[in-house]
Every structure is written in C-alpha cells, then in structure tokens.
C-alpha cells in the first residue's frame, strides 16, 4: 500500500492518534488508565446514537430527532418507574418500544409525504422535546431506583456499564452494516435510490426501518443517560443531534449518502470525546471547546474530500 493510500484509508485513526498524542504531551493526567475509561464512559451515549445515525446518513437520510429523544426517553421512563410504579424492567422495555414506534412514525412521514428527512426530523425533534416538557411538567423526575441507576453509573469489573452497552451496540451495528444484505441495501439506497428500487429493494420499508432503528438506539441511549444522571430530565440531550452528526461526519461517513463505516463513526465519537476531555484537563473553557470542535470537523471533512478527489485512474477497456 502506498503512503497516500494508507493515509486515506486510516485518516480517522491518524487524527485520533494525533489528538491523543497532543494531549498526552500537554498534560500529565490525560493518558492515565482511569481517564481513558472515563473518556469511554463519556462518549457512550454519543457512540450509541452515532451507530444509528450512521445507518441513516449512509442511506442518504438525516435524523435530527436523536437529541430530543434522549430527553423524551428519560422523562417517559422515569414517569413509568417513579410515578406509575411499573416494574423498572417492564418500564424500560416499554419506553424503548414507544421510542421505536416514534421513529417508525418519523420514517412513515418521510416516506409517505415525500418531504426531505431533514425537515421531517426537524419537526419531530421539536415535537419530541415538547412532549418531554409536557410529560414532566418542565421539571426533572428524580428518585430513580438504585437498580436502574446501575445502568448508567455501575461497573462490571473495572468497566462502566454504559461502555459495555456501547461496545455491544457498536459491534452489532458494525456486523449488520458490513455483513447483512440489509446493510448492503442501505448503501445502495444512499448511493442510488432509483437503481436500488429497480433492483428489487423495498426502499420505503427499509427507510422506515432505519428511522425506527435510530430511535430504538436513542431509547437505549436515553435510558443510559437517565441512569447516569439519576433523573429523567426534559432538557437532556439538547443540541446532542449536532454532536452526533459531527462525530459521524468526522468518521468519514459521506453526508450525501452511500459511503461510510460504523467503526469510522465510532472513531469520530472518540475524537470528540478526547477533545472535550483533553481540553477540559487543560483548563480550556466550554466556549473555546466549541470553536475547536467546529474547526476539527471542517478540517477532517476537507482532508477527506481532498484525498478522495478524483485521482482514480479510469480502467481502460
């Protein structure tokens, strides 16, 4: 493999290593094992959402609802458990199921109304946030039982539960996208929807399933987040959708669809996590962090575009 091919293929890994190297040199505490595990815990919710978003964006779609879904999930689940006194396990299953249905509805609207996913999910994002405030009365619901809190704060051995959840989901998502026919259909829809349709792909059904899946994962992420902050807060996940899109795009997933990998998006989420963590250790404030994240996003995508610009030679007959 030539050097430029290598750089192209592993650009996200190289970027991650560069960021890690930078913080390791600049600070003493960054590279500590404890901090590494801490970073993983911090990016768990982001990574779970990124997995779903990767599918959606590869199909040529967009799901802006995921941030609001975190809030809605937390409120609904907390309400079931705390106020309606439903068994926590049943509450969680019920909540995730409801969120999945919400995603199905989003998908159906996109497919049936022929309106751009960006617009429909923008609308549904506002709806979901509104519902979260309505159900909670605008204030967080506390008193989440210990067993549930374990899902967000507990550890199995040295590893936090959210990290385990994240690893399981990322691995499954990666396997499905790479090895199932469903995954290949998703690429085809994003690459050329009409060609996929003419090849017998049930395009509409798959699209609906994608938004259902994204919301299903948002449900799981939402429960994790609720457990981590020990409350169902209607404000949870505000603006999170943009972090998710940023992670996915940094990870090399093409915003116009058809191209990308789950592992890329996962690396993208890690890069964001490492940046937040490292900059915080360096005592750089939240406001500056936003500027840095924005610049990294632009650089990562510009680099990707640069290395991918038609330098492929045509194969002659």
């Amino acid at each position: 493999m030539k050097i430029n091919e290598f750089v192209k293929k592993y650009s996200t890994v190289i970027l991650l290593l560069a960021v890690v190297a930078f913080f390791s040199i600049m600070t003493d505490s960054f590279l500590a094992t404890r901090n590494m595990i801490n970073i993983l815990r911090q990016v768990a919710v982001l990574s779970i959402l990124s997995a779903g978003m990767t599918f959606v964006i590869i199909s040529g779609g967009m799901d802006l609802t995921v941030g609001s879904m975190l809030g809605l999930t937390g409120v609904v689940c907390a309400k079931f458990i705390v106020e309606l006194q439903i068994h926590p396990v049943i509450s969680i299953i019920l909540t995730v199921l409801l969120m999945t249905l919400f995603g199905t509805l989003t998908g159906l609207l996109i497919v049936k109304l022929h309106v751009a996913p960006m617009v429909i999910t923008l609308g549904m994002m506002t709806v979901a946030r509104g519902l979260a405030y309505i159900f909670s009365g605008g204030i967080p619901i506390y008193n989440i039982p210990e067993g549930v809190v374990f899902l967000g704060q507990g550890k199995i051995g040295p590893i936090p539960v959210p990290v385990i959840t994240m690893i399981i989901i990322v691995l499954i998502a990666n396997y499905v996208l790479n090895n199932s026919y469903y995954g290949r259909y998703v690429y085809a829809i994003g690459g050329n929807e009409e060609a996929a349709r003419l090849a017998g792909v049930a395009v509409d059904k798959i699209k609906v399933s994608l938004y259902s899946m994204s919301s299903f994962l948002a449900g799981i992420a939402g429960v994790t987040l609720m457990a981590r902050i020990s409350s169902g807060s209607p404000q949870s996940g505000t603006g999170m959708e943009m972090d998710v899109v940023t992670a996915v795009v940094i990870g090399g997933v093409s915003i116009s669809g058809g191209k990308g990998k789950i592992m890329g998006a996962f690396l993208g989420a890690l890069i964001i996590g490492v940046l937040s963590n490292g900059l915080t250790i360096m005592n750089i404030g939240e406001y500056y962090q936003q500027v840095v994240k924005g610049i990294v996003l632009i650089l990562a995508v510009a680099f990707d575009t640069y290395t991918n610009t038609d330098r492929v030679k045509k194969v002659k007959e």
Binding site: R184, N192, A195, G258
Partner: peptide, 15 residues
C-alpha cells in the same frame, strides 16, 4: 430490466 440510463438506473457506481 437493463435500463437505458446505465449510470442513473442501472449500475451502483459506488459499489
């Protein structure tokens, strides 16, 4: 069906 417009309807170019 092998469509008239290969690039638009036939071949999946990115695959």
């Amino acid at each position: 069906y092998i469509p008239e417009d290969r690039k638009k309807h036939g071949v999946l170019l990115e695959m």
